[in-house]
Design a protein around this nucleic acid. Structure first.
Length: 453
DNA sequence: CGACGGGACGC
DNA sequence: CGACGGGACGC
């Protein structure tokens, strides 16, 4: 009964975020001071289920301040009302009203919520989806301005994530409300500060602090090569207008460069960054350490980061190669570096008599069995785990739980998984003891994520 | 003792 | 410019 009362009057709601539940379902309306709540309710009720109307009034005089809030049950309703009512004259002789999606109460700012932030959604899609597939899937909710699938920049392979830009906020809201939950559609964050993850994974080095070009030969930077953030590919950013040839010459100082390309826009102008790939991880690690923060030309600091090239992480242990290079490195004059010693470093040290490597099962294989692995004292790198756990056949993938000392091994074949467990439980690999058990079935319910409509 | 649930584009 | 009230459940 109380719930019903709250819904009908818009009162009795708990303070804070509850009032904007679901998100973007409340309107901020700038009106003439003579407009009443009843008039607003009357004019806005065509667009959806109104849960409350409130005209802000002066504490003393009780006069309207010309501001009102209209709460709808759904974001799509609020958006539709905004689209239809913004600019309307509610009463002769008064100014046209302004209608915006209200900022959440907790929001610090009072800037208007832009349509820009309300028309683009972010979805999870099958890797096999083309942009055309994406468009066809989401066009039923409204006209689409464009669709983009996030792809690996090197292989072109889809990352299973996409953006859909609608023309109207109500369309994006409808898509989020109505599309299959498997797409996990949410409003996209505005694309300004160049994404989170890729940058997040990159150098913790403060770019404001110049790094001397010549590191002391004996010491090697402390980096956690187990984090899986290292690949052979680097991204170099520069503010100065460097040429392809300059960049090539710079990164070619480190042996093993096999690809170097200055990125250009459609007019052939430099975009201020270049992609560089080395033949091995050690070279890439070393190049990053040497050239990130390097001033070239003097006064222009280069920024060099790893980028995910989507390759497997099998070569991660070649990290040791970087340390060896550091040891033998004598500066740019030394152009030949022997890697012979590197190849003799054994990848895996274990008390297990390991079968030979076997191919992985296709990534889309159905998991028939999962192993739960506990590491002590710390988890092994994923590439080492893949190397070890693939040898019993049918391994689909290794999954480490971030921040924990446990992981899951997915197998396409039960027998293979059981053999791996029998062979590896209680054993030690590279000094890490492993418990290998059957994993509990994944818990089914997982719709905990708050939805953004 | 040790449990999974996700997510981001590059002017 | 134009941004946040009224009222007071029941573990």
């Amino acid at each position: 009964l109380n719930l019903l009362t709250s819904v009908m009057t818009g009162r009795g709601l708990k303070p804070g975020a509850q009032r904007d539940d679901p998100p973007n379902s409340r309107l901020f309306v700038v009106t003439s001071r003579s407009i009443t709540e009843d008039e607003l309710r009357d004019r806005f009720s065509d667009f959806g289920d109104i849960q409350g109307v409130w005209v802000v009034k002066d504490k003393q005089t009780k006069e309207s301040k010309g501001i009102a809030y209209v709460k709808f049950a759904r974001s799509s309703q609020a958006c539709l009302a905004m689209e239809e009512m913004h600019g309307k004259v509610l009463m002769d002789g008064t100014k046209p009203i302004k209608v915006f999606i209200a900022q959440s109460r907790s929001s610090a700012t009072h800037r208007d919520v832009e349509d820009e932030q309300l028309t683009r959604i972010f979805v999870m899609i099958p890797k096999s989806f083309s942009e055309e597939d994406l468009k066809n899937t989401f066009k039923e909710y409204g006209d689409i301005e464009y669709c983009v699938i996030i792809k690996n920049k090197f292989t072109g392979e889809s990352k299973g994530l996409g953006y859909v830009r609608y023309y109207k906020p109500s369309e994006a809201a409808l898509a989020i409300e109505l599309c299959d939950k498997a797409y996990r559609a949410i409003l996209a964050e505005p694309r300004t500060k160049a994404s989170s993850t890729e940058e997040y994974k990159s150098s913790p080095t403060d770019p404001g602090i110049p790094v001397p070009s010549t590191a002391d030969p004996g010491s090697f930077p402390v980096v956690d090569y187990r984090s899986g953030d290292f690949t052979r590919c680097l991204m170099m950013s520069t503010r100065a207008g460097l040429t392809q040839e300059q960049i090539f010459a710079l990164f070619d100082i480190i042996p093993g460069m096999e690809y170097c390309e200055l990125q250009r826009d459609s007019y052939g102008m430099s975009k201020g960054h270049a992609l560089i790939r080395y033949s091995n991880l050690g070279s890439a690690v070393y190049a990053k350490e040497k050239l990130n923060g390097f001033e070239y030309p003097p006064g222009n600091r280069l920024v060099v980061n790893f980028i995910d090239d989507g390759e497997d992480r099998r070569m991660a242990t070649q990290f040791v190669a970087a340390q060896m290079m550091a040891a033998v490195w004598n500066g740019p004059s030394t152009s030949q570096v022997s890697f012979s010693s590197v190849s003799t470093v054994p990848r895996i040290q274990t008390d297990v008599n390991l079968p030979p490597l076997k191919k992985l099962a296709p990534p889309d294989s159905k998991a028939k069995e999962r192993l739960f692995v506990v590491f002590s004292p710390s988890p092994l790198p994923p590439d080492v785990l893949e190397d070890v756990f693939c040898r019993f056949g049918s391994l689909i993938e290794v999954h480490l739980v971030p921040g924990r000392k446990v992981g899951y091994m997915k197998y396409a074949d039960k027998q293979c998984a059981d053999e791996a467990m029998a062979a590896l439980h209680g054993r030690v690999v590279n000094g890490v003891k492993m418990k290998v058990m059957l994993a509990d079935p994944p818990r089914e319910e997982s719709h905990k994520r708050p939805r953004t409509y």
